[in-house]
Measured scan of single mutants.
Amino acid sequence: MAEQVALSRTQVCGILREELFQGDAFHQSDTHIFIIMGASGDLAKKKIYPTIWWLFRDGLLPENTFIVGYARSRLTVADIRKQSEPFFKATPEEKLKLEDFFARNSYVAGQYDDAASYQRLNSHMNALHLGSQANRLFYLALPPTVYEAVTKNIHESCMSQIGWNRIIVEKPFGRDLQSSDRLSNHISSLFREDQIYRIDHYLGKEMVQNLMVLRFANRIFGPIWNRDNIACVILTFKEPFGTEGRGGYFDEFGIIRDVMQNHLLQMLCLVAMEKPASTNSDDVRDEKVKVLKCISEVQANNVVLGQYVGNPDGEGEATKGYLDDPTVPRGSTTATFAAVVLYVENERWDGVPFILRCGKALNERKAEVRLQFHDVAGDIFHQQCKRNELVIRVQPNEAVYTKMMTKKPGMFFNPEESELDLTYGNRYKNVKLPDAYERLILDVFCGSQMHFVRSDELREAWRIFTPLLHQIELEKPKPIPYIYGSRGPTEADELMKRVGFQYEGTYKWVNP
């Protein structure tokens, strides 16, 4: 592979701008107003304001973009700056750019259920340069409990009458099928589907988006991507930290609602779906819905739930269990780990287990898709061969690698495990991989909904998990304890083995 010439960040961002501006969906010269509902909250200060700053800094926003914060707290732009700027990672050389960014910011205080507050917000936006005809993007960085009041008031008082209007809704989209349907029906009564952007930030990850290209742009994968060759698929999300004093919020939802029903299920769809007619948003989402419709409700015998306990040999936070978090209700049975087996009941995947695993306070930070292939028929190497695996590593250190057998150097035919490896950090030294939120917010500006969740996708996802969630809430089974920093409950490994996964433990990928 030829040595790549190092590029400056300015040059890299210039390439990104060229890609972005050559499309006809990006209205570079139009006025846009980006409204952050819930501007005083954690999500706004840690993710949304920093993301908008990065896009502005790199010249990736339309030229005439204004940012308006809205929340109940009586704040000023200076207050917003004070709480969000520490997350910007701005350099001293960017000081003038930073001043320009905050000059485009404003803030309006108001209630979430008060019509007069929204009329005041609308008047404020109209007073901005060309504000009355601007395109408006409303980001709901809010708890779902206020979605209905907020969307109703936005629709009645704050819509642009000339430009387009788009609304970005953060997960969780309800707690179960019934609450999700209620919320979807409410929002759909106010906005068209092409105006609604239900954001799952995992769909903005580079390697998640790469799944489609790997599958449908490489001839070698087509013939082997089926039940005849693939023994099982494992989708993993692991965090090495616990709730760390923020367990009160987590306890309301648990690990299945927080990660599995959305992030992991979306990745499953991209692995299992048929080739779409095109890369058009609805063509892709149509195929994802077909996959979900082929999955039956989760069966309790295919589920393992766990909850982390303190590690007596650990240090600091590792010595504390979930129930030691003062914000967690006493005696909570909320799971911090889950392993679930699903089956896609169609011709391509009949009988292939899709194993979804996620948890907190585990032994490493990792998100990946792992396809394990069947054993080689007619073994001539005296059971020395391990199964081939194709691994798409989402985070950290984005990579695609194939675990395969090669001859060990020497005189004899002794096979050993090795890999074919594409590590993004080595291959793409001159490429700026956008943060997931950067990519998705740019998608909203461009009107691309491919990486957002459609209402029928959402409904099918909740259909699969709601009976299990209701059973857990009714019966309150005690989750299996696992030690902070471990791989999780051993019962999860036993479940995976029972459905056909072979864990060798003899080879570990190392970032080159």
Rank of each mutant, 00 (worst) to 15 (best):
S29N: 15
A6M: 15
Q111A: 12
S123E: 15
L235E: 02
F102K: 03
N210E: 05
R104V: 11
E252I: 09
Y49V: 05
A90R: 07
L43A: 01
I196W: 00
N126F: 09
P143I: 09
R166L: 01
T31D: 08
V233E: 01
S179M: 05
V68L: 08
S132H: 15
G254C: 04
A44K: 02
F26Q: 13
S180H: 06
N165C: 14
L235Q: 02
E99R: 11
L235A: 08
I167H: 05
T236A: 06
D251L: 04
D176L: 00
T91D: 11
P143Y: 05
L142C: 04
G38Y: 03
E93L: 08
N185K: 13
N64F: 08
A78N: 14
L98C: 07
N229D: 10
Y107L: 08
I35N: 06
F138S: 00
T151Y: 03
T51I: 08
A217R: 02
Q22P: 15
V233P: 05
N185E: 11
F21L: 13
P172S: 00
K205N: 00
Q22K: 14
P143V: 13
R227E: 05
S8C: 06
S160T: 11
K238H: 02
E206T: 06
F191V: 06
P223R: 07
N185M: 11
G245H: 11
L214A: 08
K46F: 03
S180E: 05
Q133W: 10
E99P: 04
D114L: 11
F101G: 01
C232Q: 13
G247P: 01
P172R: 01
I36F: 00
V208G: 01
E94Q: 13
I36T: 03
Y118S: 08
D100N: 12
E193Y: 01
L130M: 15
E206H: 06
P223V: 05
F102C: 06
N153T: 09
Y70D: 04
D251E: 06
N218A: 04
R81D: 05
S180P: 03
A44N: 00
P172W: 03
S29V: 07
L140G: 06
Y107I: 07
Y202C: 00
M159P: 11
W53G: 01
L235P: 02
L16D: 15
L60D: 02
N218G: 01
I187W: 03
Q178V: 13
F56T: 05
Y70W: 07
R246D: 03
V150N: 10
L183S: 01
P144E: 04
I36D: 04
I162A: 12
R17A: 15
Q209S: 10
V108Y: 09
H155R: 15
F26E: 12
N122E: 12
Y139E: 06
D251S: 07
V68I: 13
S73H: 05
R175D: 07
L61A: 01
F56G: 02
V150K: 00
I33K: 01
N122A: 14
Y197A: 03
A90H: 06
I230A: 05
I224T: 11
Q111Y: 12
Q83F: 11
D228A: 09
Y249I: 03
A44D: 00
E244C: 15
G204P: 01
K45D: 02
D181L: 08
F237G: 06
G247I: 06
R17M: 11
T151L: 09
E94R: 01
A127V: 13
K152A: 09
R198K: 03
A78F: 12
F88A: 04
L190I: 13
Q111R: 13
H129A: 14
A103R: 15
A116N: 13
S73K: 13
L121N: 03
M207S: 01
K95R: 14
K152C: 10
E156G: 14
E18D: 11
H129D: 14
R81Q: 11
F88R: 01
L203C: 03
I199T: 08
I168R: 05
I35H: 02
G14F: 14
A44I: 01
W54E: 09
L61H: 01
N153L: 14
Q83R: 12
T10N: 15
L235C: 10
M207I: 07
E252V: 10
N185D: 14
D228N: 09
P86T: 08
K205L: 02
Q11V: 15
V146S: 05
R182K: 15
I33D: 02
R182Y: 12
A71L: 03
Y202E: 04
P62R: 06
A90V: 14
R136T: 11
G41Y: 02
V12D: 11
Y249L: 00
E18V: 06
L98H: 01
A39V: 04
T145Y: 06
N153Q: 13
F34K: 01
V108F: 12
Q133Y: 12
K171T: 03
R136C: 10
D113P: 08
F56Y: 12
N226W: 05
S123R: 15
L55P: 02
H27Q: 12
R219T: 09
G254A: 05
I199E: 04
L130D: 09
V169R: 02
G254H: 01
P92D: 11
I36L: 05
M212K: 04
I168W: 02
F191W: 09
H155N: 15
R166A: 02
E193C: 05
Q195S: 10
